[in-house]
Structure formats: C-alpha cells, structure tokens
Amino acid sequence: MEQWFAANLGDAMLAGEELERVCALFEQQRGRNATTAVLMRHENLGRLHCELVLYFPPELAELAAAVGAQACGRPGLSEMGVAIGSPQRLAELSSAD
C-alpha cells in the first residue's frame, strides 16, 4: 500500500494563504515527476463550513512533511481536484482503479 499524506487547511474560505504557501513550496521542489500533483477536496467534517484537505502522493512525501501533513491511506477520488501540478496525476489514479 502506498503511503499518502493529508493536510487539513481548515475552513475552505480562510485557507487561501496556506494554500498559496503549499503551492510555492511545490514549485520549489527540485527533480519532481512532471506528472505529479497535490490533490484537494472540500470535505464536510461535521462542522458549519467545509474544510479544504490537501492530499500528497507518496512521491511528494518531503513536501508533505514540510507542511505538517499526516500519513493516511490513498484517498478516494470522488470530488477530488488538483491544487497544483499535473492533471495527469488524477487521470493516472482514475485509470488504476
């Protein structure tokens, strides 16, 4: 099983600054795979507002650690989008299912 990582940025309406920081760190990553991406999903975790959760695939473990992401299993793809990186990463995951 591949080790994925998740970072909950909190209230989606207030997560913009932290999302920008993650995107900037992603752009600074050297030698990353051209088809990798940080994935995102708005999730309702029983609170008033949905929260923005970022998912980092195994190849972005270093970035995940830099932003304090926690280990998790591979996320389901329902309503998943690409925060930054290649949309091809999402397509690859879809075809692997």
Rank of each mutant, 00 (worst) to 15 (best):
V38R: 00
V38A: 01
L39F: 11
M40K: 14
M40C: 14
R41I: 03
R41A: 06
H42W: 07
H42F: 09
H42T: 05
E43H: 08
E43I: 08
E43C: 14
N44F: 01
L45M: 05
L45P: 08
G46F: 00
G46C: 06
G46K: 04
G46T: 06
G46V: 02
L48Q: 10
L48V: 11
L48A: 11
H49Y: 14
H49E: 12
H49N: 12
C50H: 12
C50L: 14
C50V: 15
C50R: 14
C50W: 12
L52G: 10
L52D: 02
L52A: 12
L52H: 08
V53S: 09
V53N: 12
V53W: 14
L54T: 04
L54N: 05
Y55T: 08
Y55K: 07
Y55R: 09
F56N: 02
F56M: 06
P57R: 00
P57G: 02
P57F: 00
P58F: 00
P58W: 08
E59D: 05
E59W: 01
L60N: 00
L60P: 00
L60G: 08
L60C: 00
L60F: 04
L60Y: 09
L60E: 00
A61H: 13
A61Q: 13
A61P: 11
L63C: 04
L63I: 04
A64K: 04
A64S: 04
A65P: 10
A66Q: 09
A66L: 07
V67E: 03
V67C: 13
G68V: 03
G68F: 08
G68C: 07
A69G: 06
A69Y: 09
Q70E: 15
Q70R: 15
Q70P: 10
A71K: 15
A71T: 11
A71R: 15
C72V: 02
C72K: 12
C72Q: 10
C72E: 10
G73T: 01
G73M: 03
R74C: 11
R74P: 10
R74S: 12
R74M: 13
R74T: 06
P75I: 04
G76N: 09
G76I: 07
G76V: 06
L77D: 07
L77S: 10
S78K: 15
S78Y: 15
S78P: 09
E79H: 15
E79D: 14
E79N: 12
E79W: 13
M80K: 09
M80W: 07
M80T: 06
G81C: 14
G81D: 08
G81Y: 13
G81P: 09
A83H: 05
A83M: 09
A83N: 09
I84T: 06
I84Y: 11
G85Q: 01
P87I: 07
P87K: 05
P87D: 01
P87M: 05
R89W: 14
R89E: 08
L90I: 06
L90P: 01
